[in-house]
């Protein structure tokens, strides 16, 4: 009798236990949006997360000369650091000296203006990482202006352009038409 009761109790306990999920581990602390505000900096291709403010090609030109040209070259193609304008490749009509530049700085094979698909990325990256020696030191207005100037170096916007959260995502980069995605991966052919 005692055994039977014991078994019944065990069974009653066992059924809910076996069906139960693993214990829920929940050590994360709630995060309110205000806490994130300063850190939530990703700008998406459709312009999501672009801040208020505006900046012109003209303002960008002088900012660029003072804070960027020493590493990226006077017209964005000379290096030593990454090439911001023109096509990618070993050769290019726009820049006959390109093979010599690449011998010295191989990264000049790549080009922001020639390859990147979205203008939003220029804003996003310059704001988070440039100038290299002082990342996150530029104001949003300055980043708009520098983005406008880099687009102008690539002849993608006119000299009198001003960019803001509405106009920036509308600039179409040549890299967009070259885009293919390896994800999700297709079966090997």
């Amino acid at each position: 009798m005692y055994k039977c009761v014991q078994r019944a109790i065990l069974l009653a306990l066992a059924i809910p236990l076996s069906r139960a999920e693993l214990p829920v581990l929940a050590f994360g602390q709630p995060l309110n949006p205000a806490q994130l505000k300063a850190l939530d900096i990703t700008v998406f291709p459709d312009g999501r997360n672009l801040p208020d403010g505006r900046g012109s090609v003209r303002a960008g030109r002088s900012l660029y000369a003072g804070r960027c040209a020493m590493c990226h070259g006077a017209s964005g193609v000379e290096g030593p650091s990454a090439r911001l304008a023109g096509s990618d490749g070993f050769f290019g009509w726009s820049d006959p000296l390109r093979p010599l530049r690449i011998l010295q700085y191989p990264r000049l094979m790549l080009s922001v203006g020639g390859q990147w698909p979205y203008a939003s990325t220029i804003f996003d990256y310059v704001r988070r990482a440039m100038p290299h020696y002082a990342p996150k030191s530029l104001s949003d207005e300055e980043v708009y202006a520098l983005t406008a100037y880099i687009l102008h170096l690539n002849r993608l916007v006119e000299e009198d352009t001003e960019l803001d959260r509405h106009s920036l995502p509308r600039v179409v980069l040549p890299g967009r038409a070259r885009e293919v995605s390896a994800w999700p991966e297709k079966p090997a052919d």
Binding site: T42, F44, A82, L110, S111, W116, E179, V180
Partner: peptide
């Protein structure tokens, strides 16, 4: 988001000029 590295440095240029991302 098409971040800097997936837009340029860590993409591949294919023989036909297309640029492959997210490989």
């Amino acid at each position: 988001a098409y971040t800097k590295d997936e837009s340029g440095l860590y993409s591949e240029v294919l023989a036909n000029g297309e640029i492959e991302r997210f490989s």
